[in-house]
Simulated scan of single mutants.
Amino acid sequence: MTHDSATSAVEGSKASAKAYLSISIVVALAGAAWWFDPDWLYGWIKVLHVVAVISWMVGLFYLPRLFVYHADAATGSEPAVTFEVMEQRLVKVIMTPAMMVSWVTGLWLAWSGFGFLGIWLWVKLAAVVGLTVFHVLLSRSARRFAKGENAWTARQWRMANEIPTVLMIVVVIMVIIKPFA
């Protein structure tokens, strides 16, 4: 292991630890707030949900773009190794924690704000399940890239990059327009 990769591993571990510590603090505070149920709680949970969704979506848009470039890099080359580090950090430090916070806060909002009622809400949840499945596909693909086992071309990754866009549009329509309300 070279000095640069050792430094990257240490920095990645520190960033990951900070992310999980932050999530733990947020979850503990959310639990305390839920227990005491103050009037301001719903609005702040909604803020946290929107921030988490934005962070998650950024990752869902950016990771396939990294895969486009990674697919064209020679396995084991310096660019490929750099992409592997970027991909792993994006998945572990940003995307997965943001997805988890999005789900927890989203389900809480759906339960407390709407009682899980409304066809629009169920369509939105179906689209979010689709985003989650895509997230899992991307996470597995990042691991395959790290092993030098990518099976998709850069063109296929460009096309896959449209999946979260379509699902996000469905979510936004359901939340704002509520066509089946």
Score class of each variant (00 low, 15 high):
W120L: 01
K147C: 04
R144K: 15
V47F: 12
A110I: 11
L41I: 08
A110L: 08
L29M: 14
W122F: 11
L117Q: 14
V128S: 10
F67A: 14
L125A: 14
M95D: 03
F67K: 05
W35P: 03
V128F: 10
L117M: 11
F67D: 03
F36W: 15
F116P: 07
T75N: 11
G31I: 07
F134Q: 02
G118K: 13
R89S: 09
D39P: 04
H135K: 05
G76F: 05
F145D: 06
F116G: 08
A28R: 01
I94F: 10
L109F: 06
R140Q: 13
V85T: 15
A74G: 00
K92P: 02
T153E: 07
Y42T: 05
D72T: 13
A154D: 08
I119R: 13
T153A: 09
V133Y: 12
W120N: 09
N150D: 15
F83E: 00
A110W: 07
L138H: 02
A30W: 02
V26H: 00
S55N: 10
G59S: 06
H135P: 00
W40H: 04
E149N: 11
M99K: 07
V68G: 03
R143W: 03
A142F: 01
P38E: 06
L131W: 02
A73N: 09
S55D: 09
W120P: 00
Q88D: 09
Y42K: 08
V129Y: 10
L138I: 11
